[in-house]
Nucleic acid binder design. Sequence first.
DNA 1: TAGGGTCGTGTAAGGGCTTACATCGGGCGC
DNA 2: GCGCCCGATGTAAGCCCTTACACGACCCTA
Lengths: 338, 338
Amino acid sequence: MGKRVPTIYTVADHAGVSIATVSRVDRGHPSVADPTARRVRASMQSVGYRPNGAARALAMQRHGAIGLVFPQMSGPYYTGVIVGLEEAAAGLGQGVYIVGTQGRVRPEQLVTDLSRRVDGLVLTGRTVPDELIAELQRQRLPVVLLARTAVGASDVVRTENTRSAQRLTAHLIEHGHKTIAFIGDPDSSPDTAERWDGFLKAHRRARAGAPKSPELSALRETEGRATATRLLGSRARPTALFCANDEIAMGAYAAAAELGLKIPADVAVTGWDDIPVARFLNPGLTTVRQPLTEIGAVAARLLAERVNGSRRHASTTVLPTEIIIRSSCGCQPQGGIW
Amino acid sequence: MGKRVPTIYTVADHAGVSIATVSRVDRGHPSVADPTARRVRASMQSVGYRPNGAARALAMQRHGAIGLVFPQMSGPYYTGVIVGLEEAAAGLGQGVYIVGTQGRVRPEQLVTDLSRRVDGLVLTGRTVPDELIAELQRQRLPVVLLARTAVGASDVVRTENTRSAQRLTAHLIEHGHKTIAFIGDPDSSPDTAERWDGFLKAHRRARAGAPKSPELSALRETEGRATATRLLGSRARPTALFCANDEIAMGAYAAAAELGLKIPADVAVTGWDDIPVARFLNPGLTTVRQPLTEIGAVAARLLAERVNGSRRHASTTVLPTEIIIRSSCGCQPQGGIW
DNA sequence: TAGGGTCGTGTAAGGGCTTACATCGGGCGC
DNA sequence: GCGCCCGATGTAAGCCCTTACACGACCCTA
């Protein structure tokens, strides 16, 4: 018959000590005599004791976990962030809960539920409405926002966009391109908005004619491919495509191949993110590297500071980006040094 | 001053009801009168109440969460599995904890800690030593193993390997290849072992000469690239590379490009997994698709069955795989139908 | 008008752990 | 030989919920 799950009492009885001693042994408290500790450990083993984390969390008034909410985990972008976050969190003694909101019926409910079991939350992009974020803050839950505009007094982690976008665009202009299309939706995220901004700045700076508007596309291969196909098939075909991320750029590669256009001879392409596969594309994709794992790691650290109370004021962290020149922009394969 | 965090008592006082009623309102229990429920909800909102998940888990004797342990999350393989797992788990009302073991000092400690806060665990590949798995089973923690040989009476989710490997190899042989190298390490995982097995079977079936041994490589781009470079640079260069996964195949692409060899004219390449980028490679990568998200979803469901006690006996699930013919094997770009 | 249901709410007993404080034996200084 | 102190262990009070059961008010029915 299903015997009850062994608890700290089971172990205490078995070892002939009090539950306090069992707890101390489990936590590695130094003040337990060696023979006792050995006996207790043997008992734990022998009854098959697995301490109940919920009870501990309740007693310690700390969940020992943080939550990460992302829109679509599928892409390499979030994978990188998650890896960085998980690793840093583990180092800080925090577990990591994940929740994807893409395609969920009631994402807000998921996030609310999640908020009950963590010491802090990392929210990315457009996963959660502002009101909910505000509500969580009212509940005094530490929140870090990634790739998202600030709400109230939360911490924010971002990466540099405008400046790199401007330089990358200038690079394309130097390659002689007159008509460069921007593929992406500035309204979809502050990051993309800043990239569009830098794109325009570079044109102004070079006194070059800029497109009046971006070519809208979601940050995904399929959408990028469709948009690129349309652009490259038109009469006034642009000679360069500034893609808001690498996945769009990959779509552009596919579109170009389909239309028999050579990259970069017929059309130059640049991406953003430097996802792992970028350098394996043919030709190598010129792009902008974001420190993905670092983003996650910083978020974890910020949360830890809030949780242990060592910091009370909201902070904004902007991580640097780096332009990676390969050959899709028209440079020689070995690549220039930026 | 840091006021105490509001609890169910705070709300009860504020609303002038008992904590039982507050609890019922929160859980959506139907037997609360409407006006009362409204009043309680207003109080929750007004005091900024966030129920404590640990306390609930303790009272309900259920964590409402499962854990996933993976070796390196960086790759697309695990990303797919995680997505599937997370989505299915959410549907079953379970949260998902993740832990990566790659590069961790004491992975076993991480897993042990994790086991205290979940109702069940999904363990992948070579992340956890058999003894620890056995110990967790002794503690009656439901465990599902992915891409891993069974230990004790745990559930196992796998994908079909031998048959697809055999057919894919036969396909290469039909393309006229006499010397096909197998890149991967059969000792590193049962999956790879079975692929090697199918590879050999196909040679035997076709009365073709098979290599005596696999060309060892970890399941990563870098290692695959190094191995492929060595092979393709040798005198007796193989005319086809059967790579144990897509990442190795991508390394092979890079190696071939470096050596000025054309795929598939000079050397054919096949992969395994059908990671998202596979069809964007040039030429499109012929590979074997595994139902990644389905693997995760099945794992979540198995765990749920164990947790709610609706199933007691260990099960093994083998999911089907599908050969995806593109052009890296020598077929025409539009691809044959398998 | 008493008895029996219902419905809405409250009471109180857990659930398994941490930890401040109390207690109990020695060893040691004098 | 006495008192002190310290090290090892125990006692018990939380931590914040869920829920079986009790209870009282009210409505029906007989």
